[in-house]
Design a protein around this nucleic acid. Structure first.
Lengths: 160, 160
DNA sequence: AGATATTCGGATACACATATCCGATTACAC
DNA sequence: GTGTAATCGGATATGTGTATCCGAATATCT
């Protein structure tokens, strides 16, 4: 239902919301959130373009939230990487009755609307501050995830 | 958000709900719903496997609803072709806190739950009977669909 | 200025959803 | 039985989301 990319983006911003002091490198975020590093870089680029996170290059650089967690909604993050497409016109190519939707698509769009509303009404701050036993990232990296070797490219068979 | 396949499946069952007399051939359904005929056949097969529609081969055969529209919910149709995946465990591989979800995923799953509930609570009969100007299939094939040019890229948005 | 750490952005590979095609199978009509 | 209409099911294309890699650009530190 929600794409993998959305999941990754949300994990990243949740993690960044907890990093108060200075930017975090994408590699650090990747380890903490267990997102494939190379792909996370792409996702973060989308978030940068959307103005949600701010990136700084060079030594000591990294990415950080551009807004306060209290001002950042889940909807903004979702829409930055995989926008929720509301049903505005009839999906059948002939737009015979203008903006009016048939009963079927009216209901589908209503479902989308509830999701959109729920996401719009939830800020990152609420997520990270929620009084719960479980940390927002599902208590992630107690042990630093044993960095796999230099770089095992997975050509299972045959030498290189 | 919802896959193309879901859209096709819903169009098909809505159409079949209006076909009271005898089965309709997949070709007929394809024309009426404007779904690619070859692909619709696959979608219908899924619905057959799920016991939602009944198929009869041979002359005069075709597909028909297996249940009364009053007994068939949108959720059943959706789950037959592209099941709504509720978030039951932490998406991070380490299932450290069993069934308890972190605040983030609790909210995502809550959104899924509302969609699921909305779909479970809507029967096909309600959709086709809705007092509305627009017919459920967005008044489909008054004229037999003037074959658009060479082949238009249809429906630029993946979703509906 | 040079070395280093880091993001940026394009090229590429891979997997899966979407879509098409065709022969096999089944059922009815004659 | 034979012919015909229709689904069934596998093989195959195509497109898009997912994921990887690497060089270029940029900023900091010595």
């Amino acid at each position: 239902m929600f794409s993998q990319t959305v999941e990754y983006a949300l994990r990243a911003v949740v993690y960044l919301a907890g990093e108060k002091d200075g930017p975090a490198s994408t590699a650090a975020v990747a380890v903490a959130t267990r997102v494939p590093p190379a792909y996370l870089a792409k996702v973060l680029q989308s978030l940068v373009k959307a103005g949600i996170v701010h990136a700084r290059r060079g030594v000591g650089g990294g990415v950080a939230l551009a807004k306060a967690p209290t001002e950042l909604t889940i909807l903004e993050v979702v829409n930055a990487v995989d926008p929720i497409q509301r049903i505005k016109t009839c999906p059948l190519d002939l737009a015979s009755h203008g903006t009016r939707l048939c009963p079927l698509h009216k209901r589908l769009d209503a479902a989308l609307a509830t999701v959109e509303a729920a996401f719009r009404g939830t800020t990152l701050a609420e997520v990270v501050a929620e009084p719960s036993r479980s940390k927002p990232l599902c208590d992630v990296p107690v042990q630093p995830l044993k960095v796999r070797g230099p770089d095992r490219k997975q050509n299972t068979e045959g030498v290189f």
